[in-house]
Nucleic acid binder design. Structure first.
Lengths: 112, 112
DNA sequence: CCCATTGTACGATAACTCTAGTAGTACGAA
DNA sequence: TTCGTACTACTAGAGTTATCGTACAATGGG
């Protein structure tokens, strides 16, 4: 029950991935996942939007295949699908992450 | 007269660039510019959209800073701003181009 | 000057996105 | 069972985007 749909590695679409990455809130999520540990709950992210909007962004990321989500009690744990992305679109994620860091020197303090 | 506004290299925004690249028509334009010569006229692109929609996509690419456009007679010549992009977002353009080729093996024949 | 070529501007429409509020579900703890 | 936490679903509004048709402007060639 409460299964969350994820696209397979082979189903990843460049369109969807780039479109998911074009939102700053979602890039912030991806950045925190890339820099921090795996399995971070949604509540571990300090996002400048409401809870329902957060849910929306996490869903977009999951459906694009950028993150993997699975339930653990009342929480959902999020993990970056770095290997899948690297296999399908080599260098893309790293380039975006680097560009993102360059653009926002202090991600935790930025206003967004 | 008929000056076309372009963002400076330092003004390039990751948001805008990724969002511009998330459309397949625009990726096709970028791909053809990357693989072909500089200064290709808009009419050199066989796009599956109307002329006015084409204009729209070229404008989005120019305003995002991905291409440089300048008039030459009745035509506009388009050039990929590869150096500017590489300076600001290293590896990003190449990663997208490679992913794009991988996803669409024969760009000229694809249905889009 | 007339005309063909090339691209723009404008108006319209349908679809999508981001945002939030409200209500509800699943789970763990007391 | 009752409560709090964590997150989702649904609904809705505001804004943006992609698309096109039509009309128009700029240039170069005869």
């Amino acid at each position: 029950m409460r299964a969350l749909a994820h696209p397979d590695r082979g189903e990843l679409q460049l369109d969807t991935v780039l479109s998911a990455l074009s939102d700053p809130v979602r890039r912030r999520i991806i950045g925190q996942l890339a820099d921090g540990p795996d399995d971070q709950a949604c509540s571990a992210f300090q996002l400048p939007v409401s809870k329902s909007t957060s849910t929306h962004h996490f869903r977009v990321l999951r459906e694009a295949g950028l993150i993997e989500q699975h339930y653990s009690g009342t929480s959902i744990l999020n993990t970056l699908r770095a290997a899948d992305l690297e296999a399908r679109f080599p260098g893309l994620l790293q380039a975006v992450l680097q560009a993102s860091r360059h653009e926002a020197p202090s991600p935790t303090a930025e206003r967004l």
